[in-house]
């Protein structure tokens, strides 16, 4: 039976889809069978981030409407044979997909996978409920920005209404140089303020936005290493935290930090 994990945040643009895509890829690298589900109806982007938008034939709504079987709608990733994507409809059909419909669809698929990651839409309305209702664990993505942390606080409070076995934080886009200079709130303080356990930390990495433009997932970069740690923490329960400040320590680090500041 698959672990069904919703990846949510409340605030838009903090990296839910990026975390879903990269975490899924790392879990597939570890040999697990992974399904990524885009529950952002009408504002779907998971297919584009994964670079499979041209391979999409059916979507969740087609399964619900009986136009195809659930397995027919799955799109296999180009690089990982055990990684699949279930796309969301492109059209504004939010009201046609209920939480019950989605849960029923996933129940027909969960026996084939080890992990099902649900990419949740921004906000706290129907789309949020639909995604969280189908999950038994949650990951809240937050960036070290005041608006993101505030919204994450509201999401964590709202998640308490659902029977989830675990709610964990991923702090995304952490700037090591700003942590060193005291210009960015510390990860430990975010955990303390939100009162939630942490799954991991992902550094700010230009490679993510650069590679997402061509539908590729970074490998061998700092963020790629951080996502590998995230996947390991998720599967084994370890509590390793990626050190985002290591590039900014010592003499070379000080020069790098000062150069980045001037730019």
């Amino acid at each position: 039976m698959a672990r069904k994990i919703v990846i949510t945040s409340g605030k838009g643009g903090v990296g839910k889809t990026t975390v879903t895509a990269n975490l899924g890829t790392k879990l597939a690298n570890l040999g697990f069978r992974v399904l990524l589900v885009d529950t952002d109806i009408g504002l779907n982007n998971l297919d584009v981030v994964m670079g499979v938008e041209n391979k999409v034939m059916f979507d969740i709504l087609d399964i619900i409407n009986g136009k195809c079987r659930a397995k027919q709608a799955l799109v296999q990733d180009c690089h990982h044979p055990s990684l699949f994507i279930l796309p969301a409809p492109n059209s504004d059909s939010d009201s046609l997909i209920t939480a019950g419909n989605l849960l029923e669809t996933l129940s027909t698929l969960e026996h084939f996978f080890d992990y099902i990651l649900l990419d949740c839409p921004a906000g706290l309305d129907n789309g949020f409920h639909r995604a969280v209702y189908c999950a038994n664990e949650a990951i809240v993505v937050v960036t070290p920005h005041i608006s993101s942390i505030r919204d994450a606080g509201k999401v964590v409070a709202r998640l308490a209404n659902y029977p989830l076995s675990s709610v964990k934080l991923v702090v995304n886009r952490v700037r090591g140089d700003m942590l060193m200079t005291g210009d960015s709130i510390a990860v430990e303080r975010i955990i303390d303020l939100l009162g939630t356990n942490i799954l991991g930390v992902v550094p700010d990495d230009d490679a993510i936005s650069a590679l997402s433009a061509i539908g590729a997932i970074p490998s061998g970069t700092t963020s790629s290493r951080a996502f590998a740690i995230l996947a390991e923490n998720l599967h084994t329960g370890t509590k390793k935290i990626f050190d985002c400040t290591y590039r900014y320590r010592g003499i070379a680090g000080t020069i790098r930090r000062n150069l980045k500041r001037r730019i």
């Binding site: 005041i146 505030r150 606080g153 409070a157 200079t181 210009d183 709130i185 303080r189 303020l193 939100l194």
Partner: peptide, 22 residues
């Protein structure tokens, strides 16, 4: 006081207010 400390204090107040307004 660093920017991080200012952010932290502001957030503490905002999060407390949000809890009250739950």
């Amino acid at each position: 006081m660093t920017l991080a400390e200012i952010t932290s204090r502001r957030l503490e107040k905002v999060l407390n207010q949000d809890k009250k307004d739950a």
